[in-house]
Simulated scan of single mutants.
Amino acid sequence: MSRELQINAAQLKSAMQMAGYTLFSEGDYNLNLIGIRSADIHNDGFNDRFCVLFSVAGHECLLQFPCTTDPGTYYRENPLNVDGSAIVKPDQYPGLWQLGQHQGKYLALVQRGEITVYRDADGDDQLDTDGIEQSGYFGINCHRASKTGIAKQVERFSAGCQVIPNLWDYNVLLSLCERAAAEYGNSFTYTLLTEQEYRAGGKT
């Protein structure tokens, strides 16, 4: 993510609307979970953004955390799948996640609906989105990186999942999801925007 890019709620909502995506606005803690993918296609850091947009008692709230929406360099160069590493295609995925166990180890947002990924099969460190597309169930979860502190590099923390490096940020996200699940059910829509789509939202 470009250093100068600052996420604000008005521009984020505008970008979502321009893309034709649903925004949840009725009720408290009705969460919009939105990833923004950086234009940098070589970076192995947590240079993307994970945004949580919602309202409480009529007041709009926007939380944003560093994250990765991409597989780390290790899995770009060493794909787990014979077709290539999984890169989530920007889109809105209704009911994609539910609260559950990531690999049976700890609480996370785990895939329960179909998602579309690009397959990057050339084995270099660059993110390539011009390969084949596949839709289905690939275990694309939202989970943390290190179980302590803050991870600096993606490395093996993501083979395609959406991953948050800061444990405290992650715990805040899960707390919000638990609150939302109690009110609206254990189902969460995820929207992935590109940096270009977000920037376009500021030009209306």
Rank of each mutant, 00 (worst) to 15 (best):
N8Q: 10
E133F: 10
Q17C: 12
D124F: 02
I36Q: 01
A180S: 09
A151V: 06
G149I: 05
G131Q: 08
S135A: 13
A9S: 13
V52D: 06
F157N: 08
E197Q: 11
G201P: 00
C51R: 00
R76V: 04
F46L: 02
G35V: 03
Q101R: 14
A200L: 10
L167E: 12
G100L: 07
Y75R: 13
N141H: 10
T189R: 11
G139S: 09
S158F: 12
T73G: 12
D125H: 15
H59E: 15
Y29S: 03
K147Y: 12
E77L: 05
G27H: 11
G84W: 03
S135W: 09
S38R: 08
V110Y: 02
D28N: 14
S38H: 10
Y137E: 03
P66V: 00
R37F: 03
G113M: 14
P165L: 04
D122A: 08
Y29M: 04
L53H: 04
S2L: 15
I140L: 07
N47W: 12
L99H: 03
A19C: 04
Y106A: 09
F157I: 05
S175R: 09
S2T: 13
C67Q: 00
K152A: 13
C177T: 06
G202Q: 04
A151P: 03
P94D: 11
S85L: 03
G104N: 08
N43W: 11
F188C: 03
Q101G: 13
Q134T: 14
S85Q: 05
E114M: 09
H102L: 11
A39P: 01
D130G: 03
A182E: 13
F157H: 04
V172F: 02
E178A: 06
A121Q: 11
I41Q: 11
N43Y: 09
E155N: 15
A182K: 15
S14A: 09
G123S: 09
Q134L: 14
T68K: 01
I140F: 02
G185F: 08
N8A: 05
K13H: 03
Q196T: 05
G185N: 10
N47K: 11
L176G: 01
L109Y: 05
G185A: 09
L192Y: 02
R199W: 10
E60V: 04
Q101S: 15
S158V: 15
L167A: 14
C161Q: 04
S85D: 05
A145M: 07
N81T: 13
Q11M: 06
Y106V: 07
T68R: 04
L167I: 13
D91Q: 08
P90C: 03
R199E: 15
N171K: 15
Y93Q: 02
S55F: 08
T73R: 15
G20N: 00
D70E: 12
F24Q: 08
L99G: 00
L33T: 01
A159F: 11
G20L: 01
Q17E: 13
N30E: 07
K147S: 15
A39H: 02
Q11D: 14
K89I: 08
V82G: 12
A182L: 14
G35A: 07
A200M: 09
V82S: 14
E178F: 02
N30W: 08
G149A: 05
G27P: 11
Q103D: 09
P165Q: 06
A180M: 06
A181C: 10
W97D: 00
V163H: 00
T69V: 09
T116I: 02
T191A: 01
L192D: 01
A121M: 12
K203V: 12
Y118W: 12
T69D: 05
Y75V: 07
G84K: 03
F50R: 05
D120N: 11
